[in-house]
Amino acid sequence: MMALNPRHAWLRQLAALTIVLMVWEAAGRGHLLNPLFAPSPSQIGAALVDLFGSGRIWPHLNATFTEALAGLLIGIVVGIVLGVLAALVPLIAELIEPVMTLLNAIPRVILAPVFVIWMGIGIASKVALAFILVAVLMFFTVYSGIRQVDRKLVERIVTLGGGRWELVRHVYLPAVASSVLGSLKVAVGFAFTGACVGEFVAASRGLGYLLSFAQSTYNTALMFALILLILVVVLVIFGIAGRLEKHLLRWN
């Protein structure tokens, strides 16, 4: 068997993808595929071009981004604050941890209908869903991140003459930062899940809303175009988060 050069893996993957797309396209044009179920790549491409060409996509992209990023930000902040408090104050840990464990155990998207009833079909209910997905994740990340700080590191700082503030600054804060950064990618994914699912349930704009519209009108080309678009959006944000992680956690 021929040895494969691992550096050229992406080339082979790209070639394979091209072939799959070409076969798919040919099958579509040869009327072997029902366009109602599987529109050809060119039709999906056309739908994408139309979305951007007509400018119809922008308010939807805008809505989804706003919801996901707002949910992400509030979720991270609240998750960190609760995680730190629980790690430092045993009483708070006793009260919060069971709730968080419960929230962690259920698929939190089932809360979507509740949030719609509480906050309406506007942006707030989606932010809330993205928030609850991210906050629970961040709480556990930070809570266990602090509790797993090595006792020996703490003792080392103390024997070198460090006090409470030095411990927070040189041991606990970096521990929190590294745990948060370590799960940032997952959090980004969760935030977009929350926003899209929320829109899917009830909304008047957003990628999830557009997706549910495409589904109800059997517009599969639009559906696939949107799935592709969400994929690209999340990949780009993953890339940014990955860069950030690599830079800030370069000691690891």
């Binding site: 090595d150 020996k152 590191l153 003792e155 080392r156 040189h170 041991v171 970096p174 590294s178 000691w251 690891n252």
Partner: peptide, 11 residues
């Protein structure tokens, strides 16, 4: 100490 408990995030 027996373990070299250095701060991993510092050079």
């Amino acid at each position: 100490f027996q373990d070299d408990a250095l701060l991993p995030w510092k050079t």
